[in-house]
Simulated assay, not measured.
Amino acid sequence: MKLVRHAECRRSETPNGVMTTLASPTLGSAQTSIWRTEVKPDVAGPVHIFDGEQIWTFLEGEASIELDGETLTARPGDTAVLPAHTTRQLTAGPEGYTAIVTAPADAHAWVPGGEKTKPAWVA
């Protein structure tokens, strides 16, 4: 068993927000990564693809989720299951949003036409 102390959590900042890694391979998990995402108001994340299923549970704010051409709005308490290998984009509402996200520890992301990379918060 591994207990990840708050001080061990890893913080990754991008122009769109902050991802705080709560568990991942570098923090003692062999199969699953989980992180907290805090996104600034009215920010659109990049259009991208993830090669593992992601599960997003929204805690605060609102997000528009575009997934392969379909758009849904997520609010606090909603959980979105985003299948692997689907093009997606999340856009924050006027208050931004906070969510807990999980994905397989070996997952990679890429922009259409780009190279696969492992996001720092998944590693």
Score class of each variant (00 low, 15 high):
1 M>T: 10
1 M>A: 10
1 M>I: 07
1 M>V: 09
2 K>A: 04
3 L>E: 12
3 L>N: 11
3 L>Y: 13
5 R>P: 08
6 H>G: 01
7 A>L: 11
8 E>W: 08
8 E>Y: 04
9 C>S: 12
10 R>P: 03
10 R>V: 14
10 R>N: 05
11 R>D: 00
11 R>F: 02
12 S>H: 15
12 S>Y: 13
14 T>I: 06
15 P>W: 01
15 P>H: 05
15 P>F: 06
16 N>D: 06
17 G>E: 06
17 G>K: 05
17 G>F: 03
18 V>K: 00
19 M>A: 11
21 T>N: 04
23 A>S: 12
24 S>D: 03
25 P>K: 10
27 L>D: 05
28 G>D: 03
28 G>A: 10
29 S>T: 02
30 A>I: 09
30 A>P: 03
32 T>F: 15
33 S>N: 02
34 I>Q: 09
36 R>E: 11
37 T>D: 11
37 T>L: 15
40 K>H: 13
41 P>H: 13
41 P>Y: 12
42 D>Q: 13
44 A>T: 01
46 P>I: 03
47 V>F: 04
49 I>N: 02
49 I>F: 01
49 I>H: 00
49 I>K: 02
51 D>N: 15
52 G>H: 06
53 E>H: 08
54 Q>E: 15
55 I>H: 09
56 W>N: 14
56 W>P: 04
56 W>Y: 15
58 F>G: 02
58 F>D: 06
59 L>T: 04
59 L>S: 10
59 L>Y: 09
60 E>C: 07
60 E>V: 14
61 G>T: 04
61 G>K: 07
61 G>V: 06
61 G>E: 08
61 G>N: 09
62 E>Q: 10
63 A>H: 02
64 S>R: 14
65 I>G: 07
65 I>F: 15
67 L>A: 10
68 D>T: 06
70 E>C: 05
70 E>I: 13
71 T>Q: 14
71 T>C: 09
72 L>A: 14
73 T>M: 12
74 A>P: 03
74 A>L: 14
74 A>R: 05
75 R>V: 14
75 R>G: 14
75 R>D: 10
76 P>E: 05
76 P>F: 03
77 G>N: 08
78 D>M: 11
80 A>P: 07
80 A>F: 12
81 V>E: 01
82 L>W: 05
84 A>G: 06
84 A>Q: 08
84 A>W: 06
84 A>L: 07
85 H>M: 15
85 H>A: 09
86 T>P: 08
88 R>Y: 12
89 Q>F: 08
90 L>P: 00
90 L>G: 04
91 T>I: 02
92 A>G: 11
93 G>I: 01
93 G>W: 11
96 G>I: 12
96 G>V: 09
97 Y>N: 04
99 A>M: 11
100 I>N: 02
100 I>A: 05
100 I>E: 04
101 V>M: 15
102 T>K: 10
102 T>M: 15
102 T>H: 13
105 A>N: 02
107 A>K: 04
108 H>F: 00
108 H>M: 03
108 H>D: 00
110 W>S: 11
113 G>P: 08
114 G>Q: 02
114 G>I: 06
115 E>I: 00
116 K>W: 13
117 T>E: 05
117 T>S: 06
117 T>Y: 12
118 K>F: 00
118 K>V: 12
118 K>C: 04
119 P>A: 10
119 P>N: 10
120 A>W: 05
121 W>L: 07
121 W>P: 02
122 V>I: 15
122 V>S: 00
123 A>C: 03
